[in-house]
Design a protein around this nucleic acid. Structure first.
Lengths: 232, 232
DNA sequence: AATTGCATCGTACAGCGTACGAGTCAATCG
DNA sequence: CGATTGACTCGTACGCTGTACGATGCAATT
């Protein structure tokens, strides 16, 4: 009862007016805010994965009670939405895109997208089942512009966008979930070798041992772009 | 206490020996089995989605107690694994594949794959985070063979397989999750129109209104295959 | 001084996966 | 034949989850 706000009623800055300082203890508990909640949720997700995000745990990290979060957030779902959107902000200078080499622009755009998601492996699997936030739309807009510039016909534009979207999403989800371990991969390939009469081709190509994900992504992207707008 | 096995101790066929009939009530409760559990889990998943699968609910459908399931299955995770593998069985005659027109073969293979997953929309999002079962490996093997026949270089084979995998997974997950409703889509496009100064290109192409998923899939697949093995 | 409204939190509840142990019944054995 | 075994089923209970509800504190306003 007594301890909670341990020795400091200061609380840092109030939200509304301007009554910032109240003497000492500048770093006790900075009080809740949507930004702090989202930022901490991202931290927690990075550290513990999707299943590790629990409201009580999040509140612990924030030094608050679990129910306090619900003043700022409707429910847990919204926390996921906000965390996802926060992580997909596109910071790259838009000037770079749609410059001269459209192909480099697109590759850069999509590799950055993938990298952003891989930095937060939970994000890829969340992305498809959530609403399109402004950051995602901005990325799609840029992509669309670049494809237009590349000479993709208007009639093919949507299909082209979705193709690249699908490819990036699929690649990132797969990559993020197959990350498990070398032993696992070796065991899988081992099992495969045991059944090599059933799966001779993928056994020979060592499909399950191949872990050059970056290279495969780049290669696949080249394939797709070749199909979309053949190099001259 | 008394009612449970209501009025019939027959119970249908015992598992082991051959004591199938016991007089009347041939359709009371056919007793538990792994097959029945998996089949019912698929039904339940189809009806209620991933979140709708609860052990108690599954047991209800089976006319059994919740804990009885755990004799046949380690835990809920395994139920997901088994349901997923069950749904991805490939029944198509393997003779069709790798026949003469490799391109048609590949398209057929992948469209069937996608169709199988869309018949059970929960399966797509489950696929990437689960182990590769025999049915999945069989599909990869067939795909690999077809690509080889198509002239894809050995060095590019794995990248080609993963590219197609990524594309199919991404397309299916996206499709299954954007299925929501026409109003939602309209609302999204509406919101977009309101912000058309920010997203002029995708607003103009009506990206969010476009719901010709099948056509987009086929088109994207063509793009990718064009890149992988150019048509002569 | 009284009121208002933002913000926080303790308690409580229903629902979840599942550990544990007791129960049933058919097949087997002495 | 009775005793034993082992496959199978299920009732109860526990810890954990998201969150509804109401009490509480505190700053600004009246």
């Amino acid at each position: 009862m007594a301890a909670k706000r341990s020795g400091a009623e200061s609380k840092g800055s109030g939200r509304r007016g301007a009554s910032p300082q109240s003497g000492q203890e500048p770093r006790s508990e900075p009080s809740l805010s949507l930004e702090r909640i989202v930022a901490t949720a991202v931290e927690l997700l990075d550290a513990e994965g999707v299943d590790g995000l629990k409201m009580r745990r999040l509140a612990d990290r924030l030094g608050s009670g679990a129910m306090s979060l619900y003043w700022h957030v409707d429910n847990k779902e919204k926390v996921f939405d906000l965390a996802l959107d926060a992580v997909l902000e596109y910071r790259a200078s838009p000037g770079i895109v749609a410059f001269e080499d459209w192909r480099e622009d697109i590759v850069h755009l999509l590799e950055d997208w993938r990298a952003s998601m891989l930095r937060h492996p939970w994000s890829a699997s969340l992305l498809p089942r959530r609403a399109l936030g402004p950051n995602i739309l901005a990325r799609l807009e840029l992509l669309s512009k670049a494809l237009s510039k590349a000479g993709v016909a208007d009639a093919d534009l949507n299909a082209a966008i979705w193709s690249l979207w699908n490819f990036v999403i699929g690649a990132t989800i797969t990559r993020a979930n197959f990350e498990l371990s070398d032993e696992d991969r070796a065991a899988a390939q081992q099992r495969l070798t045991g059944l090599s009469q059933h799966y001779p081709t993928i056994e020979r190509s060592r499909l399950l041992l191949d872990n050059d994900w970056d290279g495969a992504f780049r290669k696949g992207l080249d394939f797709l772009l070749d199909g979309l707008a053949p190099r001259r």
